[in-house]
């Protein structure tokens, strides 16, 4: 089936098998390798992208379902070499260890902040509860978001040497 969609502001028109997932389409057909596959069954959130303003597990969406959709992936988050505010906050707060969950994590936070510019710590946890991180224990990720939004709930004062 032929589909048309907008990814990170660019329009694409491609032939696509009906059973192809949006994740495979993004990675293999468009070469956008920033979105990762962690489990392939919608549990881990590593493949989270934003589709029409909503964070979705791209392994659970068929590419043909994205026909006509507007998609944002991690590749569209930075403006050239300059990081977005979310990315800067993740880096500043060491919310990244192995990095495999990071793209999906950033996308889930992006959706949260589009609806709640000043989220509480609980709202941040709720927004990322579908994203597994096996490295951090989540605290530095939550801290990064609270730091970004200037929340008084942020506690850490450490920084890189």
């Amino acid at each position: 089936m032929r589909i048309q969609l907008t990814v990170n502001g660019l329009g694409y028109e491609r032939d696509c098998a009906e059973h192809r997932t949006l994740l495979r389409f993004l990675r293999e057909d468009l070469g956008l390798m920033g979105t990762k596959e962690g489990c392939g069954m919608g549990e881990c959130g590593a493949c989270t992208v934003i589709m029409n303003g909503r964070a979705v597990n791209s392994c659970m969406v068929l590419a043909v379902e994205a026909d006509g959709a507007t998609i944002r992936t991690i590749e569209g988050e930075a403006d050239g070499p300059s990081l977005s505010d979310i990315q800067k906050a993740f880096e500043r707060n060491h919310a990244v260890q192995c990095g495999f969950c990071t793209a999906g994590m950033v996308m889930s936070v992006k959706e949260l902040l589009s609806e709640h510019p000043k989220p509480s710590a609980d709202q941040v946890k709720e927004a990322i509860e579908g994203n597994f991180c096996r490295c951090t224990g989540y605290t530095q990720i939550v801290e990064a978001v609270l730091d970004l939004t200037g929340s008084p709930e942020k506690k850490g004062e450490l920084e890189h040497v």
Binding site: T73, E75, L83, Q87, K88, G99
Partner: peptide, 15 residues
């Protein structure tokens, strides 16, 4: 800002 270069690549999805 004090930076960890690997983190910067990671947040961009470039690693």
């Amino acid at each position: 800002m004090k930076r960890n270069p690997d983190s910067a690549l990671n947040v961009m999805g470039k690693t």
